[in-house]
Design a protein around this nucleic acid. Structure first.
Lengths: 347, 347
DNA sequence: GTGAAAGCGCTAACAC
DNA sequence: GTGTTAGCGCTTTCAC
């Protein structure tokens, strides 16, 4: 039991501009001017209105104001990522949120779970709330809903994956180039049997990273062996199982390139299960917490997530402000972080 | 260059109910009925309206409808956490989002950075957008802004930390009991010099976990030694430094209880730097990814984050629906997960 | 410098 | 079943 009586939640009527106007003995228009810091109100009136607003605990109703205002801004953007609980996604959201705050904008966040249908629903939900713009990590497969929304004129920036349609900004990482670099790094250490383990093939990032892998092999003069390639691995468990099968081969790989976060973790588990973590080289795409504390430390291609988010937010705010220049496709470089696992030479 | 001309972003006028009404040759009220699946529209008219809406690409304006509707719902809740990029916070957000989606509600998310002033600003921002309710991880220090908002009647649930004021629901973890359990676990292994390393003292969770530590020592018949206690550690680096000083003592601890995520990581780094990770026992509050892959695996008290988020969301939706029963203070149990580091006996 | 009237897109209340 | 009128809280327009 508490000594404080339960306030009827949500029951009280919020004071309106009219209430303030009545108390200050001015018109609502004048209150509007004061609240929005617009000129055309005498200093004494301003004081009276401020006092009235203060004493009533008045707070403007942005929903009503944006309905009437000519710019129609809701001071809200939508951010649709794959899974807000994924560290990559949440770091991105945070970076976007920081930039949004600088613009006095709030963020409506959602997880599409890489499902185009769910993504369409979320886009509709955001549109229904008249967000000023959207930052979207496109779900794999078609992007019909995104394209349609974009064609209606909604400012939109795709992040992590580029649009399959025209006229839309995007911010991505050097997926292909960095992957090639990783493979070459492994080849330089003498490795000739380098495996690729990748996420779902429908994802553009997976495709790009695979392309970089193929290019890397070619540049190193190595032949691509299908039996060393495992794709469509969704989640840690699938990756672990797939990695395990690699070591049952007559000629198992001596190095692994894992093209995603969770895939890297799965592969690491498989290596550990066979006590191969100091024998087999490993480079993963995407950094993750504690990668440096493992033994050996995990060499990764680190994306600059804050830069990705910041850039995406800046682009969408530019568009919201009316920028109609040609679409930008920003590419943020990833960095090879050497921690040990990627520096294991061919024995 | 792209072949698709840049759509004037945000320039197109959204079709309104009036447009649909005109095309379907009915009144706006009838369109409203059809769009909202309300009775009182003939099947043939429904069809005509649907077709008109479809062909115009009409989408209801929730902002306008919520302004006029008697329940005033925006179908949006605010979620204010400390840092959306923190794994604990983002897991919580995701759990809340899932429950929200089941109610066709979207989530406005923000990071308070544990700053009461920033939290106040965010609360105001949310209120200005007329969210239906809020789920808040209260910043340390005073909770004036939260209390004021609550007293205005806004449905609010505090998560992770309880309110310092009455009449408000909360969902927390068994901080004290679980901490005591951890200390007793260490004492059972023979440890007599057990250190406490904690986050900022202003945080309720830190205080509770410290209280549990003190209780645990008492139950085990051990004396509390101030020199083994380090508090106010914010972030990994501070924790690492503090942990290092412990091992410079004449009588260093043989076991550590680290009362937060990042503190645990910092302590681990300090242990590793001195190659003590297999000598000194360690139990941390909060689980974290890869804790099982370290050597030794890290024993932790794991919070049931999805349950915390789910419960918080359910409570806020109950209040939004008008539930005025006495405040609930739900407590979700944490679990001791034994992975090795906490099972190192006194040598 | 200030206010009255109109209306943003929608729904409540009531009439027919 | 369907439409009319009024009005949610605010800003626009324009008059004074």
């Amino acid at each position: 039991m508490e000594n404080w009586t339960m306030e009827p939640q949500g029951a009280r009527r919020e004071p309106t501009m009219r209430d303030v106007a009545a108390l200050a003995k001015v018109s609502t228009k004048t209150v509007s001017r004061v609240i929005n810091d617009l000129p055309g109100a005498g200093p004494e009136v301003v004081e009276r209105v401020r006092a009235a607003a203060q004493s009533l605990g008045y707070r403007p109703n942005l929903t009503a104001s944006s309905l009437r205002r000519s710019d129609r801004r809701s001071a809200t953007i939508g951010v649709l990522l794959e899974d807000l609980s994924n560290p990559f996604d949440s770091a991105l959201l945070r970076a976007i949120e920081d930039r949004a705050r600088q613009n006095d904008v709030l963020v409506l966040a959602g997880s599409s779970e890489d499902d185009p249908d769910l993504q369409r629903e979320l886009v509709t939900s955001l549109a229904t709330r008249r967000v000023d713009g959207m930052v979207v990590m496109a779900a794999g497969g078609h992007q019909d809903a995104l394209q349609q929304e974009r064609e209606r004129g909604t400012p939109m920036v795709l992040v992590d994956r580029p649009p399959l349609f025209g006229g839309t900004d995007s911010v991505t990482t050097t997926n292909r180039d960095s992957s090639r670099e990783a493979v070459l790094h492994l080849a330089d250490l003498g490795h000739r049997r380098i495996s690729f383990l990748g996420d779902r093939k429908t994802l553009w990032t997976s495709q790009e990273r695979y392309a970089g892998y193929v290019e890397g092999l070619a540049h190193a003069g190595l032949t691509l062996r299908e039996e060393l390639v495992r794709t469509d691995l969704h989640g840690t468990d699938a990756a672990e199982t797939a990695a395990a099968t690699l070591f049952d081969l007559d000629e198992p790989p001596t190095a692994l390139f894992t093209a995603q976060n969770l895939v890297t973790v799965g592969a690491m588990r498989a290596l550990r299960a066979r006590r191969l973590q100091r024998q087999v080289a490993l480079i993963g795409f995407d950094d993750f917490p504690l990668a440096d504390m493992l033994e050996p430390g995990v060499t990764v291609l680190r994306q600059d997530v804050p830069a990705l988010g910041r850039k995406a937010a800046e682009l969408v705010f530019d568009r919201i402000r009316g920028d109609r220049s040609a679409p930008t496709h920003a590419v943020v470089p990833a960095t090879l972080v050497r921690r040990g696992s990627g520096e294991i030479p061919l024995r």
